[in-house]
Every structure is written in C-alpha cells, then in structure tokens.
Write a protein that binds this DNA or RNA. Structure first.
Lengths: 148, 148
DNA sequence: CTACAAGCTCAACTTAACTTGAGGTCAAGC
DNA sequence: GCTTGACCTCAAGTTAAGTTGAGCTTGTAG
C-alpha cells in the first residue's frame, strides 16, 4: 500500500466524517490549511486528518471553533506537529474539561434541592450565584447582559 | 410583609436578572405567561420568578428552551405548581445531567491518549465513535450550553 | 476526447436565543 | 398639563457553525 501523498477535499471529508462544506469552513476560519493544484483544487497533507479529528473532539467537549483556532496557534507553523505538541493542547483542554465536570456535578447535586426549595433568589441560591457559574471563555458574549 | 400581588416586566427583569426582552421572548415561546392591564401592559404573578430561575438553571445544564417548554407542559395549567410538580421535572433533568457528566468523563479520560496516539480514525477511536457522542439527539443543540 | 463526477467561489439561508431599534402608548411626579 | 420613564409591537440584526444552491471549472474513466 503506497501511502497516498496528498488528499482531496472529498477524501478528507470521507475519512474524517466531516462535510466538504465544513472543511471549507474550517479552512476559512484558519483551522486547517491546504495548498492548491494548478487547477485551483485543494490538496491536504495527511495530518489534516488528525487536526479535523481533534477539532471534532474538542467541539464535543464544548470548546468553540474560535478557541480551538486559538489553541492551534500554539502549534508549530513550519513542521508537522509532534505528539508532544498535541499533548500540550490536550492537557490544557483536559483541565477545562475537569472544571466543567466539577461544575456540572455541583449543578446536579444542587438541582433537585434548589428547584424544590424556596432559595431561587438570585443572591442566595448557589445555582444562581454568579461565582458558581460555568466559566465563560466562549467568545459569544450574547448572554452577558443577563448576568447581574 | 405585604405580598406584592403582581409584577411588571421591569420588576421581573430586575428580580430574576433576565432582560426585559428575554422575558418577552420567553413569553412568545410559551415558557412564561402574563395577563395584561387595561393599558395592555404585562403583569406577572409571583411564581414567574421561579419559572424564570428554573429556565436559567436548566439552560446552564444544557437544556434547550424548546425542551424546557416541553417539560413545562407537564406542569398543571390551572394552579400554581407545587413543590411536587417541580420535583418531577428536576428528577428527569437530573438524569440527563448524570448522563452528560458520564459522557464528559469518558471524553476526559480518553482525550489525552487519543490526541497523543494514532487512533483518531472515525471507526476505531472511542472518542470518535458515534455511539459515545455527546451530541444531543434533540433538535439542534450541538454543544452544551456551558458557556455563560 | 468527451462525459460527468468532483471541485471552486460566493452569497444566502438555517437554528437558537436573544438584542437592538424604530415608532408609538401609558402612568406618575411636578 | 407636561415631561419622563417604563411599556408596547414588530422587524431586523447578531453569533456560531455550518449547509445549500447557482453558475462555472477540473480531472479522469471509458
């Protein structure tokens, strides 16, 4: 089996399970890179598969594309990222995940009580307490006004 | 303490920490209800505060407004919901939360390994396995509403 | 050498959950 | 009676993460 040197969008789409349009989109967002053939078609190096896989996993963990892109900035520009490079990323995300899990647990443990009881005032209820809130590195800012 | 009978939108907004526009929105979505004064202004009964608080908590847990609205359907139409009524809801959501926590844990435990290793193919990697996905089978909510 | 599948670009549409704005009404203090 | 602030409605805008479609070009199998 001769290693295929370069992949077309279609091939990447098939192998990564991501739509072609999504790949275009990721590229526009700077998450993946391609070079073009003389006929202007995209060609990808193999490590794009890893990148895409990581994008998907990170998304499932609740990390936004913007944050993923930011994290990818830490990857080496010139060379293909090594296992070390990737590990750095995953460690950071693991920490985030740990926090999210902890916060969800807190929420879960308080949910029944707090719905059942009379403590739903914003200032007193632990669930409604700003300090306890799930952290918001997300870039959205849509819901900012709501938190008082 | 004289019980304040009815609340204006502004008062509900202030006390619940939710914008007036959001309250209008919730009402349009059937999540809360109001009646009108002769001058066409909204007036809310006190238990709207609990509803709003629960909406926000549920959202943070990753439940969409549509799902919250659906859950609210189970609440009694005529009378103010009792603690029992609310408990029924919270129990169901607690189960969902438990599942989400379990999935996040799975993800966390696999993250470092799977990013570092070569198993990122869609068919083989546990993280990439469809059955293990976090994705809500529900309508549209792709990510946990964990940010803000 | 020619079909036609696969690719390309760009714009517009989608969903969730709101916010913002325009243009107009209502209620209370002075 | 007037001014001011809280309300009202309805339309349009916003963000994330893509998808869909139109119109046009490439590349490859037969």
């Amino acid at each position: 089996m001769t290693p295929v040197r370069e992949l077309t969008v279609g091939q990447v789409a098939m192998r990564s399970g991501v739509a072609v349009s999504a790949l275009h989109f990721y590229e526009a967002r700077g998450l993946i890179r391609s070079h073009r053939t003389s006929g202007n078609q995209r060609r990808y190096s193999r490590d794009v598969l890893r990148r895409v896989a990581i994008i998907r996993v990170a998304q499932e963990v609740g990390i936004s594309l913007a944050d993923i892109a930011a994290a990818f900035q830490s990857l080496p520009e010139g060379r293909t990222p090594t296992r070390e490079d990737w590990n750095l990323l995953s460690t950071a995300w693991r920490d985030e995940l740990d926090q999210k899990i902890a916060q969800l647990k807190k929420l879960r443990d308080g949910l029944t009580d707090c719905i059942g009881c009379g403590c739903m005032s914003i200032d007193k209820c632990p669930l409604r307490n700003k300090e306890d809130r799930l952290s918001a590195q997300g870039s959205g800012a849509r819901r900012l006004l709501v938190e008082r």
